[in-house]
Write a protein that binds this DNA or RNA. Structure first.
Lengths: 286, 286
DNA sequence: TTGCTCCTCACGTCACGTGAGGTGGC
DNA sequence: TTGCTCCTCACGTCACGTGAGGTGGC
């Protein structure tokens, strides 16, 4: 029995025009009968249902296309939207402020800072895939809320975006999957936690070392084990290390970030001090 | 000296096409020179700047029109967007869940609930103005996360939207301003606070009464003072009381909410019990 | 033949961007 | 006259909604 468009729409919950549009966009490809009528298979109707759900969730037809023929796509969509919503939240806050005190100049300045931040975070997410990219952009996002006041900062911003536009972090498939697996639980709360921990460590590295000495030593021991040497974790670390030194991440991106953002410079300097302390306390650390 | 479009754009930060569009939409009305060229006054350029800012904040041209010729409009925009973002957040959460466990049917059910909730909240905000509307919709929003399973609930939903579509809460200008003033600090955190307080009171009204007896008694005393009787607060309370009994709020809306949402019924029953207890403890309460 | 479904255009939406083609000013 | 600015169409965008006009099936 043929399933014509009316029936297909009733069982998928779409309108006729919507279904026709998805057919035109080749999201579904119903069979064509001799008289020109479309015949929707059961699979077609299932696809229409999913399309409807994804549209209600706010995905574009392009995004739906990607989701329907690849699992991982939904994750990338989710990351992009998370970033967009972050921007929306900031803008909403600015609207409230503007309504309260009518300070147009201040709002303009904030908007400019916000736009720079979003530019950098978008590119970071484009370079670093999956949850790892999300982690990276949450990490740097914290230091991108300052206005640009000097020429040096303007130049640093150009250097940052220049680097990010040309960088490519192409993990081999196997490591990409491993990384996705490892970072699956990197949501906002988790990252905030890591960040807090890191800040504590950086602030008073000696005390942190005292408290977590055991954990550290176990970790270093693990790193020297043969099992670790053969593990994907080890290959991933090696890949990232190579990327950092070969791509310009260490020599171009990080220095530019330090020039762009005072708070990032402060953080990074503290990190380096902490690193030196750890090396002193723990000779086989590096 | 005339200011032609190129100059006006440079000093407002817009593109020529954007500025032309705003002129076409009558957001600015530059003078027309004999040769057909547009001449932008200083005021026009100021308006263009503001338009640019508001567009970057995400307002539509319609909304900008309202903001440019009435102060309060920005507040209404802010409320609408707050509601929309609330929906966005929920949808984002659903995307994450879908990516994690692929449970399409569950997501569909959540989307349906979400849509009903948004429908009701939108109308609530349309009926009740300003921060007061925001408070009301935050209050009821908490009880609108349940799926519809029975016919009675379906009917109750229709009754709720029917009521909200026809209700009108037109405060006299003077009371409207007073209400806006009073509720200016009703943000999310404040409402959560009030809600928590209320829940505590409702759970164990006797204990709550013990603890806050003084405050209550002062409040009741105040209400009997002559100053209060002449205050806008008193007139506002009277207006709301009249609205509640005359519009169908008490007789249609609240009963329908109780049929629609189990959690609201539970809350409301507890509230009534608490009310009875208070009346017993405190004879001149009602 | 009558109603109902199906089909394919065509036009509108929103805030512009991207030209094209023509005129004014120096 | 040359180059630059100004003007006003016209068309495209995204995911459909709203018809219009014509055909197929019972």
């Amino acid at each position: 029995m043929e399933v014509l468009i009316h029936t297909a729409c009733r069982s998928s919950g779409l309108t006729r025009k919507a279904a026709e549009y998805y057919v035109e966009q080749q999201l579904v490809r119903p069979a064509l009968l001799e008289n020109g009528y479309r015949d929707f298979s059961e699979g077609d109707v299932e696809r229409l249902k999913k399309i409807g759900t994804l549209r209600k969730l706010g995905l574009s037809v392009q995004e739906i296309r990607a989701v329907l023929d690849g699992e991982g796509a939904l994750l990338e969509v989710s990351r992009r939207r998370e970033l967009a919503m972050e921007g929306e939240r900031s803008r909403q806050e600015l609207i409230r402020r503007l309504a309260a005190d009518q300070d147009w100049a201040w709002v303009d300045a904030q908007l400019e800072t916000l736009e720079r931040k979003q530019t950098i975070l978008e590119r970071l997410q484009a370079v670093f895939p999956g949850y790892y990219g999300q982690y990276i952009s949450l990490h740097f996002g914290r230091y991108l809320n300052e206005p640009i006041v000097s020429e040096e900062q303007r130049e640093a911003f150009a250097a940052v975006t220049g680097f990010l536009d040309s960088a490519s972090f192409d993990l081999p498939q196997e490591l990409r999957e491993y990384l996705d697996e490892m970072t699956r639980q990197f949501d906002g709360a988790f990252v905030a936690d890591v960040q807090a921990n890191l800040e504590e460590a950086v602030k008073d590295p000696a005390a942190y070392w005292q408290e977590h000495q055991q954990t550290f030593e176990q970790y270093l021991l693990l790193k020297q084990s043969e099992a670790y040497q053969r593990s994907p974790a080890c290959r991933l670390t090696a890949y990232i290390r190579r990327f950092n030194s070969a791509s310009g991440y260490n020599d171009v991106f990080i220095p530019a970030m330090k020039r762009l953002s005072n708070s990032y410079r402060a953080y990074h300097d503290a990190l380096e001090r902490a690193d030196r302390v750890l090396r002193e306390q723990c000779p086989n650390y590096g």
